[in-house]
Every structure is written in C-alpha cells, then in structure tokens.
C-alpha cells in the first residue's frame, strides 16, 4: 500500500514560463510593425469635424499633411490665438506651402507623384477664410487631390 503524506509535499507543479518570452516577443513585433512614430509634434490644436462619407488614405508615403488650427496654449503667448498653419514641425505661412509640397514630392518616385494627396487636418472651429486661402494656394500649384480629415459621425444629424 502506498503511503499518503498529509499536508506536506503536495505543492502545485510549477508552470513553465519558458515560452513567456516568445509570447511577449510576438506582441512586441506586432506593436513594432503597427507603430507609426509621430513624425511631427503638433503645435496647433486640431479636433477633426465629423462626417460620414469617409475614405481611407491608403499609402502614407503619398500623403502630405497640412495642419490648421489655433496654437496650443503654450505657444499662445508667442503666436497669438488666431488660427495658424503648421507644416512639419513649425508654424508656417500660406506662401510656404508650395515649397513644402515640392520637398515632399521629391521624396516619392517620379511615376507616383501624381498620386500625392494633400491631407488637410483642420480644426473644426476654424473659419473658412484660412481654409479657402490654403485651397486656393493648392489649386495654384496644381495639387488638386485633397482630403479633409474627419472623424466618423455616430448616428444621424
């Protein structure tokens, strides 16, 4: 007959954690792949307007971003509270847009240059004046593909 020891020596078997690093690594790779490092720090406040007819912008490399909005609180002292344009990392004027887009253009292979979209990331409370000026500038330099960044509107109007 076997002996049953009471109370002692029945510790639960240790779960092997040897595969834990593998699992974590898989997660790690997933996040590494989907991560888009923020390439520019936003200096203006941008809250997108809401819409329903949204289209996805597929190729990130074929998109140039133009931000328009009020300067953030810590820049307000220097730049005031009127809506401003931001290109890359800095505040800009409307006349800087052609050069900015030209610089973006040379980064893309020649046969894809016609497919570049200008993504207008405009705050919803900005007035149309500045937006119209940007649009006019874009038309003048023949950058006609434009995307107004918006969020999906839940529900009806």
């Amino acid at each position: 007959m076997g002996k049953f020891s009471k109370g002692k020596g029945r510790a639960t078997p240790k779960i092997s954690t040897a595969s834990l690093p593998d699992i974590i690594f898989i997660l790690l790779f997933f996040f590494m792949v989907v991560t888009v490092m923020k390439d520019s720090e936003l200096k203006v406040d941008v809250n997108y307007p809401e819409a329903t007819e949204l289209q996805k912008l597929e190729k990130k490399s074929l998109v140039s971003y133009i931000y328009v909005g009020k300067p953030k609180a810590n820049y307000e002292a220097a730049y005031g509270s009127a809506p401003r344009i931001q290109l890359n990392d800095a505040f800009a004027e409307i006349d800087n847009i052609p050069l900015f887009l030209e610089k973006e253009k040379v980064k893309v292979p020649e046969q894809q240059r016609g497919l570049i979209t200008a993504s207008l990331r405009v705050d919803k409370d900005v007035t149309m004046g500045i937006v119209t000026d940007v649009k006019t500038k874009l038309r003048k330099i023949n950058q006609l593909k434009v995307n107004y960044s918006s969020r999906l509107r839940p529900g009806e109007l």
């Binding site: 923020k38 949204l54 289209q55 434009v146 107004y148 918006s150």
Partner: peptide
C-alpha cells in the same frame, strides 16, 4: 508610442486654377 490613427476623410478633387 503607438498611435493607430487611420487617415480618414472626405476626398475632394479641386478644380484647376
């Protein structure tokens, strides 16, 4: 650091100037 922000919006073709 991940921001999974998808680029969505209303696509428009402006008329040439």
């Amino acid at each position: 650091t991940t921001t999974i922000d998808v680029d969505k919006g209303i696509t428009v073709k402006l008329p040439p100037w």
